[in-house]
Simulated assay, not measured.
Amino acid sequence: MAKQKQEMQFRYYEMPEDSFVLALTGQSWVRAYGDGIDCLHFHNYAEIGVCHEGEGEMVYEDTIRHFEPGCLTFLPPNYPHTTNSKPGTLGFWEYLFVDCEGLIEYMFPRRKASARRMLDRLYRQAFFFCPGEAEGLWDKVCRVLEEQKEKGEYYRQETDALLCLILTDIVRLEKESAAVRVPIPEEGMEDGDLERLRPALQRIQEHYQEELYIGQLARLCALSETHFRRLFTDCMHLGPLDYINSVRIHSACVQLRSSNKSIRSVAFGCGFSSISTFQRNFRKFVGMSTKEWRDKPENYEYKLNQYKINRYEGW
């Protein structure tokens, strides 16, 4: 008889029109958190929370942290968690649910690679800050909460600017983890070199799932293969083939982290011709096997497949 899956709740929120943030504020959030709830939950947007009053526990899948006034949290979308007040007491939290994808696209309107890398780093882990540990972040988050409550002149513009700073601060705090870093062509490249390589870089980004030939990429750039290889390596600090495989492995990491697809399906879907070639390149760029990587704590989305998910509209 198959083992019954443990329950988990998916609590989803609707984002206000033309906004990157939904603020949950005010006295309605003075409550006994976790009362009558015995399972974890996750959201469709990133959650930023500040604790004003009360004590208790923040429970992640494999970690428990004590909270008190002055604590601040950042949780990526789909991150399992719950908040439990100390028995017999009330807590007071206020929350921001943030459309990080939309906001980061707004920050990088013409730099998709930079936007993708920032979002990838932002979603790798949750953050829990004790009182006084992140005073700059605390101040910015509280300013957003106040702007959302008061809705003064240009409050949306002020909120967007503050949220951009908040996400940037969080990305800077993100720990180095085992994930392939695809070089970003916009960084550290002369404009002329970028323009010469742009057709090849675009072809790789759009068609990495297919078989790609270095000679064809060179012809797209109107360069000899020898000149193309030399220029590409000088600019990207990777040879063309290694760069192609790094893009493929990055895509594989995203799929392994966020879906229940088989290793075989991911490997062939990302453009590798065999499982052995995929596994060899995965270890080369990530430093471990696919199973070891998939079991790491930051790959929390994959672990959702172990639960029975019940869908609820957010409070």
Rank of each mutant, 00 (worst) to 15 (best):
K3V: 06
K3T: 06
Q6R: 03
E7A: 13
Y13F: 15
E14W: 02
E17W: 02
F20E: 01
L24K: 10
Y33S: 07
G34R: 04
G36H: 02
H41T: 02
H41S: 10
Y45G: 02
Y45L: 10
E47Q: 15
E47L: 09
I48M: 09
I48L: 13
G49S: 15
E55W: 04
E55H: 13
E57C: 14
D62K: 09
I64L: 11
E68D: 03
P69L: 10
C71Q: 07
L72E: 13
N78F: 14
Y79N: 07
Y79C: 13
T82R: 15
P87L: 14
L90A: 11
F92S: 08
L96C: 11
F97G: 01
F97V: 04
E105D: 15
E105P: 00
F108P: 08
P109D: 12
R110D: 12
A115N: 08
A115W: 00
R117V: 01
M118F: 05
R124K: 05
Q125D: 15
A126Y: 06
F127C: 13
F128S: 13
F129E: 11
C130G: 01
W138K: 00
W138F: 13
D139Y: 05
K140A: 15
V144P: 01
E150D: 03
G152F: 08
E153I: 02
Y154A: 11
R156A: 04
Q157K: 12
D160E: 14
L163C: 05
C164N: 10
L165T: 08
L165M: 12
I166L: 06
T168G: 11
T168I: 00
L173C: 04
K175R: 12
A179G: 08
R181M: 06
V182A: 07
I184P: 02
P185N: 04
E187W: 11
G188F: 04
D191K: 14
G192Y: 12
L197H: 03
L197N: 06
L197D: 00
R198L: 13
I204F: 04
I204D: 06
H207Y: 14
E211K: 06
L212G: 14
I214R: 02
I214T: 06
Q216P: 03
R219E: 15
L223I: 07
L223T: 02
L223A: 07
S224G: 14
S224L: 11
T226F: 10
F228V: 08
R230F: 07
L231D: 01
T233S: 15
T233G: 08
D234W: 15
H237W: 14
Y243N: 07
N245D: 14
S246M: 10
V247Q: 04
H250W: 08
A252S: 11
A252M: 03
C253V: 07
L256C: 08
R257D: 09
K261N: 05
S262H: 13
R264L: 02
F268P: 07
F268T: 06
F268A: 02
G269A: 05
S276A: 12
S276V: 05
T277C: 06
F278H: 10
F278I: 01
R280I: 02
F282Q: 05
R283M: 08
M288G: 05
K291E: 11
D295E: 11
E301R: 15
K303M: 10
Y307D: 10
I309Y: 09
G314E: 12
G314W: 09
